[in-house]
Design a protein around this nucleic acid. Structure first.
Length: 425
RNA sequence: GGAGAGAUGGCAGAGUGGUCGAAUGCACCGGUCUUGAAAACCGGCAAGGAUGCAAGUCCUUCCAGGGUUCGAAUCCCUGUCUCUCCGCCA
């Protein structure tokens, strides 16, 4: 969430950033609301001060007559009526302001290229060679179905569309990918592995920015108003909601595998077949909480972490810098990873690494304290996928297929595959 | 699901109507001592907000929301969460 004082002091920067997201924000209105809130707040505080002073008269003077006490009581009671009204008004203004501020996306970093659609995203690098096939490569679904490794009929029967059932070695491969990724993150990049709840409270979703605007993409349960997480970014980043972290403990790095649940409300008709876009999918996530001076360095480190996985899996990929039009609500700068999918003849997104700067930490009230000088500040938060397991599964099936429709297992995954080197029928 | 206990500063933990933003300990910071360190001793140390050039002054906050009272960490009600015991259960 934005600091209204920052908006007041950096009005043009703020407006420009919003404009790049195609948003016209009535900043004058925001400032007006804040000013009238301040007026009311000052009144409330004056009332409270008077009220406190009167009450203290009783506690400080033991020799007051009961008549005098009575007099004070009446005075305070009258004061309270005025105070209450004023307080209600000021809280109303505060709520109005906060509600508007919560709707506003993060400021865009200067590094983010300007664009009007995803077509303006900028390719930073392209790594790896696309495999050459002397036959027409198939799509993952066809391969998996031919090998009897996926069962959509059953999935539809038990849960409906956009769910799937993986079987046998394909399920094992899914598990292998997940383990390989987690090991990479913990062993080589010192992320702390966690297992986390996949149901969270409203506050968490406000904290990371899914709420209040994107509730339609989420599933809400009827247990304690909990929501299913759309990404493990939500629980991991919220670890430190309302905390004051000792500066000495930075950087904090967490990784986890979770299922992610998305309604895919706006994606009707898109990627309807196969594992590309499901209501439930597995993902390994990375979250870093760092000093504001270090966040871009940390993003580079995160990118290296993801790249190591892709290059060891020997999958061809592109690194893409998201343009202003494609940037997520909470992010100020995002790098996407797209992997080559020969069956689809396309690169498809498998990871997104974002520097959210202090946007989420403000919303979550996550602060860092330097105990040497007593200074408190908001840290920067970053999140990235490392990676979307289902989509990597697709990429492996399609890149490692052979003419017979079998799937070879990438070298680095073999130790996770109980000796299986090729999936065949 | 049944019975009980609890939620207080970075942490532990006292505090049952006024002088409590809150004892004490740990941690942390500054100092004395020391060649240096440790120990010991002395001092400091919650967050958020308003106002002010500043020093400062003021307001709010002891899980959350209501209530009683001139005055609430403390009393009452509701909710949430945690713990212990019993039952059930992966």
């Amino acid at each position: 969430m934005h600091d209204i004082k920052f908006i007041k002091e950096n009005r043009t920067d703020f407006e420009e950033s919003m404009k790049k997201r195609n948003l016209e924000i009535d900043v004058t209105k925001l400032i007006e609301i804040h000013n009238s809130y301040l007026d009311l707040l000052n009144k409330v505080q004056k009332f409270q001060e008077n009220k406190n002073l009167l009450s203290k008269k009783i506690s400080k003077n033991n020799d007051l007559s009961s008549n005098e006490i009575k007099q004070i009581s009446i005075e305070v009671r009258n004061l309270k009526i005025e105070l209450e009204n004023c307080k209600i008004e000021s809280e109303k203004k505060k709520k109005e302001l906060d509600e508007q501020l919560m709707q506003l996306p993060n400021l865009i970093d200067v590094k983010t290229p300007y664009g009007t659609s995803e077509n303006d995203n900028k390719i930073i690098r392209q790594v790896g060679k696309k495999p050459i096939f002397n036959f027409k490569p198939k799509q993952h679904l066809e391969i998996a179905e031919n090998l009897n490794l996926i069962d959509y009929k059953k999935a539809i029967k038990i849960s409906g569309s956009r769910f799937s059932i993986l079987k046998s070695e394909l399920s094992l491969l899914h598990r292998a990918i997940m383990n390989f990724m987690l090991d990479n993150n913990t062993k080589f990049f010192q992320y702390l592995e966690c297992s986390v709840p996949e149901m969270v409270k409203d506050d968490c979703l406000y904290g990371t920015g899914q709420l209040p605007k994107f509730g339609e993409d989420l599933f809400k349960t009827n247990f304690n108003n909990l929501w299913l997480i759309p990404t493990a970014e939500v629980p991991l980043t919220n670890f430190h909601r309302e905390d004051i972290i000792d500066l000495k403990d930075l950087p904090l790095r967490y990784t986890t595998f979770t299922n992610c649940f998305r309604a895919e409300a706006g994606a009707a008709g898109k990627d309807t077949k196969g594992l590309m876009r499901e209501h439930q999918f597995g993902k390994v996530e990375l979250v870093s909480i760092v000093h504001p001076d270090d966040s871009f360095q940390e993003l580079d480190r995160m990118i290296k972490c993801v790249e190591k996985i892709l290059s060891e899996l020997e999958l061809p990929y592109k690194i893409v810098e998201l343009c202003t039009a494609d940037l997520g609500f909470s992010s100020s700068y995002t790098i996407d990873f797209e992997v080559w999918m020969p069956g689809q003849d396309k690169y498809r997104e498998v990871s997104s690494c974002s520097n959210c700067k202090d946007f989420q930490s403000r919303r979550m009230k996550t602060r860092v304290k330097n105990f040497n000088n007593g200074k408190i500040f908001f840290p920067h938060t970053l999140n990235g996928s490392s990676l979307a397991v289902g989509r990597i599964l697709i990429a492996i099936i399609e890149n490692y297929q052979n003419e017979e429709g079998f799937i070879n297992i990438p070298k680095v995954l073999r130790k996770y595959m109980n000796g299986v080197v090729q999936i065949k029928n």
